[in-house]
């Protein structure tokens, strides 16, 4: 199954900025009238880009915006692996671990990042900056080993390159990719 994580129940109120609501509205307008549910994945991506993760109140609010039942958002958010259903670090390193990346050293890369950040897979550093996750095939098989962070690919990685990358993220010198 794609996902085993259960969404975390929180009652913390959620606030979508005007800019976010505007982007969501434009996404909905792309689909024919009555088919607004098709924008659900875009809305989840947009909400996650602004809020960092997808909480139950966030899903409830998306349901409200799309005029659908909350369960319709829950079942989608729990199916697709890109949505973080619990709080994560500011920078989530998703390291591809599938066959072609493994052939060129992804196992060793994952181990190295874990040691460097002093966390295991699925964990977040104490300062809340980094979360280490593994991902199944990210579609960069010829450019591995690689990781994705905030919609940006970092490819042809070596221990030295990944150390430099961690430092750059710490310094805040890498802009997010898309969204």
């Amino acid at each position: 199954m794609s996902h085993t994580t259960q969404p975390i129940r929180t009652t913390e109120p959620v606030n979508f900025s005007e800019a976010l609501l505007g982007k969501m509205d434009r996404a909905i307008q792309q689909f024919p009238e009555g088919k607004q549910k098709s924008a659900i994945l875009t809305l989840l991506h947009l909400a996650q880009a602004e809020l960092g993760w997808i909480s139950v109140p966030t899903m409830d609010k998306i349901a409200e915006i799309l005029h659908i039942q909350a369960i319709e958002v829950y079942e989608v958010a729990t199916f697709y692996t890109m949505f973080h259903l619990e709080p994560v670090g500011k920078y989530v390193f998703e390291v591809c671990r599938t066959g072609p990346c493994m052939l060129v050293g992804s196992d060793q890369l994952i181990e190295h990042i874990g040691q460097r950040l002093n966390i295991g897979v699925g964990e977040t550093t104490e300062d809340g900056l980094f979360t280490l996750k593994t991902a199944e095939c990210l579609g960069g098989c010829g450019y591995g080993p690689l990781l994705q962070c905030r919609h940006r690919f970092h490819e042809h990685l070596t221990p030295e390159k990944v150390d430099a990358l961690i430092e750059q993220y710490r310094q805040g010198t890498i802009e997010p990719g898309a969204l």
């Binding site: 794609s2 549910k37 924008a39 659900i40 994945l41 319709e72 199916f79 697709y80 890109m82």
Partner: peptide, 27 residues
């Protein structure tokens, strides 16, 4: 012409799963 994203699910490359996903559902 509209371009729209998936959410990370290999199965959505199967054409009917893709259509389900494009309709805003599980793949």
């Amino acid at each position: 012409l509209v371009v729209t994203p998936g959410g990370g699910a290999y199965i959505c490359g199967e054409e009917t799963a893709l259509l389900e996903s494009l309709e805003g559902k599980r793949g």
